[in-house]
Design a protein around this nucleic acid. Structure first.
Lengths: 353, 353
DNA sequence: ACACCGGATGTAAGCGCTTACAAATTACGG
DNA sequence: CCGTAATTTGTAAGCGCTTACATCCGGTGT
């Protein structure tokens, strides 16, 4: 609709004098007295061009303040130099750190990241996929989404996929699982070594894979130490602060004794600490608390939170790296650093009764 | 580069059998036995089309799993339905909340937000602008950037701008300033009303406008109450947790007595609380602390932080709304809710000596 | 029965860019 | 100084889409 576009610009120009339609290759070519092919070649360095013309063109570009139209280039090239990224919520501190890693990595390599939030539900996530596909992104990175493996495999037929924080084998998909079980094991074992035996666990959403793997690690640590697992000490949460508060309140009210609390993630731990505080309990004197993720702000909590580090930032960078490798046609050979326990001040030996 | 694009697709198909080149309008038209114009009209509802053809086309679309190519449409229409958003860091909890507001608002109205981080420096911010302009976004929202007013005014000639958290008058720019001074006044007055007279202030970066407005509010509250302002009690920070820690340490070491601490933002307050804890001081018993921004996690701190709320989320939504109004050619009539003080448990009356 | 009209379709141009291919220019060797 | 090869440059087609304009259709009025 050239006509409409032109009309539009004309109208705008007339009304507000503002968005002058941006310069095009053609204008630059005319200004510099060369053909548009030459201009294109100079911009992309696609071929040798005589020095004088080059100067003329560069001058014209500067004068007109020309910027190539990415849409047109994308159309001609059949690629957008854009990587779509789907998370659950852009404002979750957890995802935000990952996004940062992705953005940093991609931006330095000439790619742009396009972020979208799935809002913890499948329908929204599909909407995101659809939008990204429509924009013809070159690849999509999914941060532990809620889409079924089967659906992902289907999408992978249309675009390369990197799935972070999840294990999934399928053609055109690369997954970067986090060692949740080992992290949970480390955390729980740390509490056991401090002398705790009554260790409660605040889980995430029941059927969530991360949650169940962490639960598994928790149980294994207990078993390894010969401590009987008490189901009464396991309560569900929601991966958010609020869930941590509620779960802890429930635990406290239930009357089941415990001296330590392992939380499925840091946000849950934040909530737990608040609930303990409300209950007049001191962390770590009365109850030790361990989180998982080691969010940036965890080291600034009062007291600083002991947590399992799995640098989300690195996860993000690695996802970006894996995607770029896939785009080169290589099989990604990326691996994540091991999870590790960061001991701070929210854990201590249990109080002598 | 039709040739290259075609080659590319052909190659890919041959090698990996994966990214089959996506269906086009033309394919749909052929499949349905109509012209591409008809297909386009059905997709966009641009004109009346007989029912039987419509059914045929819809069937073809479903069968081929067709999704219009956004780049091609953008090129034809001369607009991208995309709004660029520049922040300092996507992983800062402050900006993340704003981004969420923008994303929510725009997405519901058929727009997509494209986020980029300026990393607190002008060069990166310019790079972002350049990239967004190249992508021909329909408008750009800037969250309290570091670009000079003059530069912004220049950019505004090419694209409509909304500048949040900052006051700036210029054609094609709409700014949404936050009432920093009043917020700081409220916070400081609250401390005074509790009985504090020795109130320290941890500032942000020296020349930052937000910081100086908040400083102004702080001084005004003191003046209103007839309390002399002691420059010794004002120390710089960096808007981050670390700056809060350091500033507080310095304050503590200086030996200048104070019973309350007003921090330029919540992150700084988090750091301050940690430093107090390290110094064996209890908040609020020994020292009261107030922040600014009321981040989501502030209500989950131990103790929950008293803070000035200026919902960033709403700021984001409002920015989106203003941008859409500008795009309609209207002058935005958006205004922000008043800042308000949220009193929690990090403030109390000063301890009797 | 015929010219005419309004609405549903189709045809084709153009959005800004890249690049295959042709044309024009330059540099050589004889 | 000319023919030919090696460059540099220009021309034009095509990427997938929208829409102005032409075409075609059945239905009216007379």
């Amino acid at each position: 609709m050239s006509k409409r576009a032109a009309d539009n610009n004309a109208r705008k120009r007339a009304t507000t004098a503002l968005p002058d339609s941006p310069p095009t290759l053609e204008m630059v070519a005319k200004e510099a007295g060369v053909s548009i092919a030459t201009v294109s070649r100079i911009i992309n360095g696609t071929a040798k061009v005589s020095a004088d013309r080059k100067d003329a063109v560069e001058a014209a570009i500067a004068k007109l303040n020309f910027r190539p139209n990415a849409a047109a280039r994308g159309l001609a090239l059949g690629k957008s130099n854009t990587i779509g990224v789907i998370t659950q919520a852009i404002d979750s501190p957890f995802y935000a750190e990952g996004l940062r890693g992705i953005e940093d990595y991609l931006q330095q390599r000439g790619y742009t990241a396009l972020f979208m939030s799935g809002n913890w539900n499948e329908a929204d996530e599909e909407r995101c996929m659809s939008e990204l596909l429509s924009r013809r992104v070159d690849g999509i990175i999914i941060f532990s989404g809620r889409l079924q493996d089967r659906q992902l495999a289907t999408y992978a037929k249309q675009v390369p996929l990197v799935v972070s924080g999840r294990s999934l084998k399928a053609p055109n998909i690369f997954s970067l699982p986090v060692d949740d079980e080992r992290g949970a094991l480390l955390a729980t074992r740390h509490l056991i070594e401090l002398g705790h035996t009554r260790i409660a666990f605040i889980a995430g959403i029941l059927d969530h894979p991360d949650a169940s793997l962490r639960f598994k690690g928790y149980r294994r640590a207990l078993a390894d130490a010969g401590i009987a697992h008490d189901p009464k000490l396991v309560v569900p949460g929601d991966f958010h602060e609020e869930g941590g508060v509620e779960a802890t309140m429930r635990l406290l009210k239930s009357g089941h004794k415990f001296t330590a609390l392992f939380c499925v993630n840091d946000q849950t731990a934040y909530g737990a600490c608040l609930a303990l505080y409300r209950g007049g309990l001191n962390c770590p004197r009365d109850i030790s608390v361990v989180g998982f993720d080691d969010l940036h702000s965890s080291s600034y909590r009062v007291p600083p939170l002991t947590s399992v580090r799995q640098s989300i930032r690195v996860l993000g960078e690695s996802s970006g790296a894996a995607m770029l490798q896939m785009l080169q046609g290589e099989r990604p050979d990326i691996s994540l650093p091991q999870v590790e326990l960061i001991v701070r001040e929210s854990t201590a030996a249990p109080r002598k009764e």
